[in-house]
Design a binder for these strands. Structure first.
Lengths: 341, 341
DNA sequence: CTGAAAGCGCTTACAG
DNA sequence: CTGAAAGCGCTTACAG
């Protein structure tokens, strides 16, 4: 059957077949690497490859994906890029996916449940082979969407019950961070009442819950009690943390002896408050932040930060991508590191 | 012609046609919104839509793209996510692309020329309609690759000569930042010799060149001369900056009166040095950083930062995407802001 | 108002 | 060693 020579910028295998006096089958197999199986001569293969290069041939992945019924694409959604934790997750994911021969697509969904769903749906329309949900507000909803179309999902950072989850061990990380703060704080003068503040995050968020649990556990271990208004999951945004901290100061009329800050974004709020009020006073407060940022780590000597172990999390993720069979709906917890000033 | 009912997880328009006793053409047009043109009854359209929803129909974008010879995808490459500037570029790009009905794909290429090319090629295989090159090491090489396949490119942050470029006005930004530093520094005691250090970046990088030019220009305006070893484009990496600064201190045996740091990543190196040597001394140095980071902005009172105007850059970018006709290979410079402590 | 058919650019079983 | 042909799931001009 005579095919028209395409006049677009993209030569097809039919164009190359014509130019090399062969057939589309031959050209196709040379171009996609299956030509040895077809016992095509090296000479012919090289000739075709040469012409392809000369003409700037670029295989049409849409056509390939449609025919093979496999896109070769893996997708990831995450809350934002602007954060050492998420950005290193994205970078590592892209690199490893490429190494596996996948085409990675990543998109950020700003903790917006609707956007998460819309982004997932778009990706499914593009027939991604896996969807990695990082820090998704409702991973199970997305997982169900994916399940309907037979697409594997894996959760990172925030766990779900519909698929494998790889998260930080927030509980033990929080115990360690709290213990570190306690060690830098003068012992309470009366009643064994702790004056360490927990601030930031959302009460119903899995990670925040686990960290609050670790915070309490560490206190219990030292026989310390915690006043209710020393636990303030006021949201993640910096300004919310700043407001809540201001409120706290107005109520208690004194600085806390230490602060467990639940994220770097919350830490911005705290730093802003201290800057407003005179930054010197910060040195007298034992700071701990569940998240790591290099600049934040450099401010003051009285700071500890938790750095989540992204390399280990990504190694585990790609282990699952390589062995899709052995998946259980299990939560894998990775120990984060503590970084002291 | 009888089509087999697909048994995969993805129902096709043929499946829906069968289920609704209509044809693939009808189903297709209802699903892609062209049905009004076909004067299909609202009732029938709704019926088809209902069945589609019930069956979890998801249009196959590969098939659509292949048939329409348009992918609806726009691509962006950028050096990294982990930085307020690039991450906000990525986030804004994604959002605006989605608003325009495009499917955005972003990937980071770590300032690696080979990876940039490989990523661009992959994207071209996926038939992206535009490629936005952000901070690419060799934008023209990529532009030529794209031109061969008739794909529009636009450069962001670093200019090229083969396509429209939207960049910060590094020259005037550097003049302003340098002037700010000069104003915070004691006048030189002898010879009008400036003791303000320029550090970080690469000598042959367009942005660094422009910023050095602005640095010199501001000095000229105040009749100040600059010693050669006060200009140190030692690379971007933090440890390189730290090393170069250490070298500088060993040579001059004194702190500079001010420092023009060429990026936040270089600033990390400087901060590390001061932390090693005792951070107090930093308050006596007038700091200026050509880049913005909220934590960095909070350290010390003697700091100014340049914040590049990402919203304006993105507005301009999408103006070009909306009017692809009026493109000249022009460089558009956007004024960055100065943020004082 | 609706359907049959062609074709986008590949891959691959089949036939030789 | 190589080619003709079918088919992946759409869109759309054409015909009625």
């Amino acid at each position: 059957m005579q095919k028209k020579i395409s006049n677009s910028k993209h030569p097809t295998i039919y164009d190359l077949a014509e130019l090399t006096n062969t057939s589309a089958s031959t050209v196709g197999s040379v171009l996609n690497g299956t030509w040895r199986k077809r016992r095509i001569s090296v000479k012919l293969a090289e000739k075709i490859l040469d012409v392809a290069k000369e003409k700037g041939y670029s295989p049409n992945m849409q056509a390939r994906a449609l025919r093979k019924e496999r896109s070769g694409i893996v997708g990831m959604i995450l809350p934002m890029y602007d954060n050492r934790y998420f950005s290193s997750i994205a970078e590592s994911f892209e690199q490893k996916a490429r190494e596996m021969g996948f085409f990675p697509i990543v998109t950020c969904t700003r903790r917006d449940p609707d956007l998460e769903l819309e982004a997932a749906r778009s990706m499914l329309n593009h027939r991604i082979e896996y969807l990695i949900c990082t820090g998704a507000t409702d991973p199970d909803k997305i997982a169900n969407l994916c399940k309907a179309s037979g697409t594997q999902t894996i959760n990172i950072d925030l766990p779900g019950s519909e698929s494998v989850s790889i998260i930080s061990d927030n509980f033990s990380g929080a115990i360690n961070l709290t213990t570190d703060i306690i060690s830098r704080v003068p012992p309470p003068s009366k009643n064994n009442k702790s004056r360490i503040l927990f601030i930031g995050g959302k009460e119903n968020d899995h990670n925040t819950k686990e960290r609050m649990r670790g915070f309490r556990e560490a206190h219990k271990h030292f026989n310390l009690t915690i006043d209710d208004n020393y636990i303030r999951p006021c949201g993640y945004a910096g300004y919310k943390t700043e407001q809540s901290f201001d409120q706290f100061i107005k109520e208690t009329k004194q600085l806390p002896s230490g602060i467990f800050v639940n994220s770097t974004i919350s830490l911005e709020g705290i730093m802003n408050w201290f800057r407003r009020e005179g930054i010197e006073s910060l040195d007298n407060v034992a700071l701990g932040c569940f998240d790591w940022d290099p600049f934040a780590a450099l401010m003051g000597k009285n700071t500890a930060m938790v750095r989540q172990n992204v390399p280990a999390m990504m190694d585990l993720l790609f282990q699952f991508l390589k062995n899709p069979n052995e998946q259980e709906h299990q939560i894998h917890q990775i120990n984060p590191d503590i970084i002291r000033a």
